[in-house]
Design a protein around this nucleic acid. Structure first.
Length: 437
RNA sequence: GCGGUCAUAGCUCAGUUGGUUAGAGCACAAGAUUGUGGAUCUUGGGGUCGCGGGUUCGAGUCCCGUUGGCCGCCCCA
């Protein structure tokens, strides 16, 4: 048994594990690039205060934090949002807008492990800065959906639940609640799906019992699952702010619908996200079977860049975590069975032939072909077996007989056919083979 | 932080009421096989039975503790 193990919640990635992860990252990158998002990165280690400023002191319990040798309080990043807010805030005046950025990075949280959650994980983060209207949400939600569809997931596998903290504020405000009560109530609404009426307990502890009539209205609003219900719940003659907000909704839903993504969107006012810093539309992606944790989450946070980066800048963003996402792919059989096979396997007679082969091997590799050969002398039988197991489409045979005649033999591993060509034409012949008929 | 459950080879697992030197399959390696395919056969390497303590003539097996995995609660940026 090994003396050393990874720290709790951390994982080793053997090549077959890393291949799956890399495949996920590659499709995310391609998708983000197709949407015109630019990739950035930030330090893994940040000042602890960056997270205190965003989330308050209590966050510290879930942080990998320590004091460095310069007596600085630091923390491994638990999320990307504060860092990226700093970046765009610093250069807000110089960046062309809209600012569409994404990253794929590793994060650390000192938490208890669970299915789909570890102490280190990766997230794909995408944000649009500088666009206050729902056009930014259209862009981001479309990107989120495509980041899943790119793997073959369909509307049968997942959906994006869409809600609006802004509208909740309007609605609860119209019922006569003040800001503190609204925030406490949103906390209850966030937990209602899981905890039921228990969820209202913290609110009632702080502000006293919720009148039945009010509670019924909250529960009715929370149960809204379509835009039509939303419109009628707000009445035929909504206040001016509410009417403008409904126009934003029409624009957002209309845009996503025009992109052909309507089947992926589920209006669901029961989603409000626990985070106080969200200011407008919020959304979460779930697997349709409801067996897994949330796949992704995001929303608008128009005040955070000003708080962390210095310049006021509207923003909306989301993150997809890699662990739950990988579980979903695995479950649906969409995880790639990748074993990168060489293009060419060289079968080599002996030491003299090996020297001849090396020149070609290096030339082919320089040309971008993936070339393998046995490091140690092996019987021909073993070498052909190894060539077959490697998955190479082509075997080059450097035997004593062939080299004596100035030729190299080329075997198509698929068709099991062979032909010979002059030893000087190896690269051209290989190129011809892979160019195909 | 709390609860449940598990821990024997790289992997999946056997291991009898406590009894000799802890086993199998897969995987890996060598040979059969010095010029042609994933087979077969033979052989081999690989274990402080998670770790520590206790009971016992004797512990993989029973007891206590501990560490770690998995599942859930709290939390979930």
């Amino acid at each position: 048994m090994a003396t050393f193990q990874p720290l709790p919640g951390f994982r080793d990635f053997y090549p077959e594990d890393l291949a799956k992860r890399t495949h996920i990252f590659r499709l995310w990158r391609q998708t983000a690039a197709a949407f015109g998002f630019a990739e950035y990165d930030t330090p893994v280690l940040e000042p602890l205060d960056l997270y205190r400023a965003k989330s308050g002191d209590e966050i510290e319990a879930q942080l990998f934090s320590f004091t460095d040798k310069g007596k600085r309080e630091v923390a491994l990043r638990p999320e990307m949002t504060p860092s990226v807010c700093r970046l765009v805030g610093e250069r807000a005046g110089a960046l062309k807008r809209p600012i569409k950025w994404f990253s794929i990075a590793e994060f650390y949280r000192y938490e208890r492990m669970q299915k789909g959650r570890g102490r280190c994980f990766h997230q794909f983060n995408a944000d649009v800065f500088g666009e206050p209207g729902p056009e930014a949400e259209i862009e981001l939600i479309a990107l989120l959906v495509q980041c899943m569809r790119a793997f073959g997931l369909t509307q049968k596998d997942f959906c994006v639940r869409l809600s609006d903290r802004n509208l909740w504020f309007h609605y609860l405000g119209s019922l006569g609640l003040d800001d503190a009560r609204i925030r406490a109530l949103l906390g209850a609404i966030d937990k209602y799906e899981r905890s039921g009426h228990e969820a209202f307990k913290p609110y009632e502890d702080a502000f006293g019992p919720l009148p039945e009539g009010l509670k019924d209205k909250v529960l009715a609003f929370l149960a809204i699952r379509s835009f039509e219900e939303l419109e009628s719940a707000l009445g035929a003659d909504p206040a001016a702010g509410t009417a403008a907000r409904l126009a934003d909704w029409r624009k957002l839903l209309g845009g996503l619908s025009a992109m052909g993504l309507a089947d992926y969107i589920q209006v669901d006012l029961g989603v409000v996200r626990g985070l106080a810093y969200y200011t407008g539309f919020v959304f979460e992606a779930f697997d349709r079977k409801g067996e897994l944790r949330a796949l992704a989450g995001g929303g608008r946070y128009d005040d955070l860049v000003g708080k962390l980066g210095g310049s006021e800048l509207p923003a909306v963003g989301f993150a997809i975590g890699d662990m739950t996402f990988a579980l979903l792919l695995e479950e649906r059989g969409l995880s790639p069975a990748v074993a990168a096979a060489p293009d060419v396997y060289c079968v080599i007679g002996g030491e003299a032939e090996r020297r001849a082969a090396f020149a070609d091997i290096h030339r082919l590799r320089s040309g971008g072909y993936r070339v393998e050969y046995p490091l140690k002398e092996l019987a021909f039988g073993k070498q052909f077996k190894a060539a077959a197991e490697s998955g190479a489409r082509l075997a080059l045979i450097y035997g004593g007989d062939e080299l004596a005649r100035g030729v190299v033999k080329m075997r198509d591993m698929g068709t099991r056919t062979e032909r010979e060509f002059p030893a000087s034409e190896v690269e051209a012949s290989v190129r011809g083979f892979f160019a195909g008929p």
